[in-house]
Simulated scan of single mutants.
Amino acid sequence: MEIRHLRYFKVLAEELHFGKAAKRLFISQPPLSRQIKELEEELSVKLLTRDNKRVALTEAGKHYLRECEYLLNGLEKAKQQCQQIHLAESGIFNLGYISSISKEKLSELLKQIKNSYPLLQVHLFETSSQKQLTALEQGKLDIGIVRAPITRPMFTQKSLYEDGFVLALSSSRGQIMNGDLRNLNLSRSSFISYNSDYAPVYHQKFIEICSRLNFTPIVMHECNTIQSILELVAHDVGIAIVPKTVQQSSIASNICFLDISDSSDIKTQIVMTYLSNNPNKLLFAISELISDLFK
Rank of each mutant, 00 (worst) to 15 (best):
S107D: 09
I266R: 12
T58Q: 01
C82H: 15
L186N: 12
L184N: 12
G174C: 06
Q269I: 13
A199D: 13
L283Q: 05
N280T: 07
A60R: 07
A60C: 05
E162R: 13
F125R: 08
K10T: 03
I266F: 12
A148H: 05
Q248F: 11
T273D: 06
V233Q: 00
Q248M: 08
K77M: 10
R7I: 07
L232T: 02
K205E: 08
N52S: 15
S100V: 11
Y274E: 10
R212D: 07
N185W: 15
L106S: 04
N224Y: 11
S129K: 07
I218R: 10
S190A: 10
Q83M: 13
T127H: 06
N195K: 12
S170Y: 03
N178P: 02
I101P: 03
A168Y: 12
E41L: 13
Q81A: 13
H63D: 15
E15P: 05
S250K: 15
L141C: 04
M272L: 09
L48M: 04
L282E: 04
T225F: 12
D236R: 02
F165C: 03
L6I: 04
E231V: 12
E41H: 10
Q227E: 14
L119T: 10
K103H: 07
L47N: 01
Y161K: 01
Q175K: 09
Q112A: 11
K46Y: 05
E108D: 05
K37M: 12
V55C: 08
S44N: 14
K140M: 08
L16P: 07
L119Y: 09
S129H: 07
A148D: 06
K244M: 11
G139I: 03
A240T: 03
R173S: 13
I3F: 04
S102C: 00
K205G: 03
I286G: 04
T127F: 04
F18H: 14
Y274W: 11
L25F: 02
Q35L: 09
M272C: 09
Y202H: 07
K20G: 00
I36W: 00
S128W: 09
L12N: 01
I241W: 00
F125N: 10
I266Y: 10
L136S: 09
I192F: 01
E108A: 09
I270R: 00
E208Q: 08
E104K: 06
D163M: 08
Q269W: 10
E59P: 07
Y274V: 05
I270Q: 01
L181K: 07
R50W: 05
E137G: 14
